[in-house]
């Protein structure tokens, strides 16, 4: 559905994005993940034909974004990050205007606008001007305008930014409900959100693709390194030394001590080896009291940081 090949965009000297390539199949939901200024918005702007690429090719639904821009624009629904709407229009008037521009048949416009407003929960805001709405409601109007022509491809730039937790949940479930038939690209820097909504994640940093896989694969890729947190009461130096001597331990970190006299340690094993069972054995041999032993999972957060910073992460 979406093909991107070696896409590069430079702003004067600065690089926006650098040699990005990926494909999105029909019906797939993919997430762009990356810190601010990584190039997520730039990529989306190129895909929506708002901005040209410096080099490389991109096509949406079989149409080239540069050569066949009008056809591409007929196929997409776009929600820019800042949700720029005409504030001086009433909500239904605005949506009717967009529906007209997107070429909906005249007879369907009224019913479609009503349907959309109900879907995103705007029915009770029908008499208000867009400028009077709060951020959450504006976001809904933004979604409604993107969805009004039932587009095959949805491009959503940070769809949940600036919303309160309840609204975030609502918008997320709305987006999840849209998947299936539609191809969706969304960007975010909230990791759980992406892993929850998307079938595939593209991690972008400094204009380059750093990783591209399903959330599960990304997690398991880094899961080969097993780590545990242990809470042990015993002389700190001895414990540290003892833990380090266990076969297969890669590193041990002292994490701090609690008032009860216990100390916390993080133990990381070498690749492909999980030796968590060796810790209780050691503790009973040495007559230390073991209070807690928890596997420290690598969260998506860690993976993300690991990928974008390219250095060891300590949890």
């Amino acid at each position: 559905m979406i093909n991107v090949e070696n896409l590069t965009k430079t702003y004067g000297q600065a690089r926006g994005i650098n040699d990005i390539s990926f494909n999105v199949a029909k019906g797939e939901i993919i997430g762009f993940l990356g810190p601010n200024g990584a190039g997520k918005t730039t990529t989306m702007r190129i895909l929506t034909c708002f901005m040209p690429a410096t080099s490389g090719k991109a096509s949406v639904a079989g149409y080239d974004v540069f050569e066949d821009s009008l056809n591409v624009r007929r196929k997409i629904g776009y929600l820019p990050e800042s949700v720029p709407l005409y504030t001086d229009m009433q909500v239904p008037v605005y949506l009717k205007f967009v529906a007209g521009l997107k070429g909906l048949p005249r007879k369907q416009i009224n019913s479609r606008v009503g349907e959309m407003m109900e879907k995103v929960g705007l029915t009770h805001m029908a008499h208000k001007f867009v400028g009077e709405l709060s951020k959450g409601y504006r976001q809904r109007v933004g979604l409604a305008q993107a969805l009004i022509n039932d587009p095959e491809v949805l491009i959503l730039d940070e769809p949940t930014i600036g919303l309160d937790p309840r609204q975030i949940i609502e918008i997320r479930s709305l987006i999840r409900g849209l998947g299936g038939e539609r191809t969706i690209i969304l960007s975010s820097h909230i990791l759980p959100e992406v892993s929850m909504l998307c079938e595939r994640i593209i991690i972008i940093d400094e204009g380059r693709i750093k990783a591209m896989d399903t959330p599960d694969n990304l997690m398991s890729q880094l899961h080969s390194v097993a780590r545990v947190q242990a809470k042990i009461a015993g002389p700190k130096d001895l414990v540290l030394e003892g833990l380090k001597k266990i076969g297969g331990v890669h590193s041990v970190d002292f994490k701090g001590s609690a008032a009860s006299g216990t100390n916390s340690y993080t133990v990381e094993f070498v690749d492909g080896f999980d030796g968590a069972h060796l810790i209780p054995r050691l503790a009973s041999e040495q007559k230390w009291d073991l209070y807690e032993l928890t596997p420290a999972k690598m969260s998506l957060e860690d993976i993300f940081i690991k990928i974008v910073t390219d250095e060891e992460v300590h949890v």
Binding site: F50, P80, P84, L101, K102, G103
Partner: peptide, 14 residues
Amino acid sequence: KTGTIELLLTYPVT
């Protein structure tokens, strides 16, 4: 200034 041009120019309008 308000950025609405981003939406306007991504609608199928010449």
